[in-house]
Computed example of a mutant assay.
Amino acid sequence: MTKRLSKEQAANFACQLRYNAGLNEREPIHIKGLLIKLGILTRYRPLSENAYGLSLMTPDKRFRFMLINSNSTRGRQHFTAGHELYHLYFDPEPKPHVCRKVGEKPSVERDADLFASNLLMPSQGILGEIPADELRKGISVSTILRLEQLFSVSHEAMVYRLRSLSIISESDIERLLGLSISDVARANGYDLSLYQKGNENVTLGDFGSNARKLYEMEKISEGHYLELLNQITDGKQ
């Protein structure tokens, strides 16, 4: 049985990727800029309702590819990208797979989620943006909204990250997730694009000339790759 990733390991891996990309341990990440900087060919396109995205790379790890569901909210898309970065750089047994919304997650998928949470919402960055009095007395919804906007993640992802950092209690989760976050964001004057789908047919990287190289794999054929694409775009399980 594969050993689960610890919180400390997830944080260390996240710091390692940030360092390699020239980012410090606190700043928010512009995810598209990071994907371009890392040279990961990325496509955003509508996928089946049950799919967040997928990733794969050549056996020599020279070329990496990511597909993200543009029907997800932008905040969720950012988290999916962080999740797939774990598979592309730190997964001990990387293989082409579809990250799905439903069903019990294998341990490696939970590891990828833990990594994405640390990568996109670094503890020092989060703690440094919360007023001292709210750290003592309880964080406000307006501060949570500001954190979501600053770190470009979904409301759900931020709520669970705050819980993992012991900033909110277990009993706070249901109340916060029960909010109509778009209405609350609108009332607080925030742009709503983070909570909406988008980026359909956006391509990052030189997809046209390099995608062919991703298909020329020793262990993963073009037919296998196309089969994966057809599986998720056709909504098959």
Score class of each variant (00 low, 15 high):
Leu177Lys: 12
Pro131Cys: 03
Ser169Asn: 14
Thr143His: 02
Ile167Lys: 02
Pro131Val: 03
His155Ile: 08
Ile173Trp: 05
Asp133Pro: 00
Ser123Trp: 07
Leu192Val: 09
Arg161Pro: 02
Ala157Gly: 05
Leu147Thr: 11
Asp172Thr: 14
Gly178Gln: 09
Asn201Ile: 00
Asn210Lys: 12
Leu176Arg: 11
Leu127Met: 07
Asp183Ala: 15
Glu174Leu: 11
Leu150Trp: 07
Leu192Lys: 06
Tyr190Asp: 08
Leu194Ala: 04
Pro131Glu: 02
Gln124Ala: 07
Ala132Asp: 07
Arg146Pro: 00
Asp191Arg: 12
Leu192Ile: 10
Met158Asn: 05
Ala187Pro: 00
Leu135Met: 09
Gly198Gln: 05
Leu204Met: 01
Tyr215Leu: 09
Tyr215Phe: 12
Ile139Glu: 01
Leu194Pro: 01
Ser221Ala: 07
Leu127Thr: 13
Asn188Gly: 09
Leu127Gly: 02
Ile130Tyr: 01
Glu129Gln: 09
Gly125Leu: 02
Lys219Val: 09
Leu214Pro: 00
Leu177Phe: 06
Leu127Asp: 02
Arg163Ile: 10
Leu177Asp: 11
Ala187Thr: 14
Ile144Met: 08
Val153Asp: 00
Leu192Thr: 14
Ser154Lys: 10
Ser164Asp: 15
Tyr215Ala: 14
Leu179Tyr: 07
Ala132Cys: 02
Asn201Tyr: 06
Leu176Phe: 07
Leu194Ile: 10
Leu120Cys: 03
Ser140Lys: 08
Leu192Glu: 11
Ile139Ser: 01
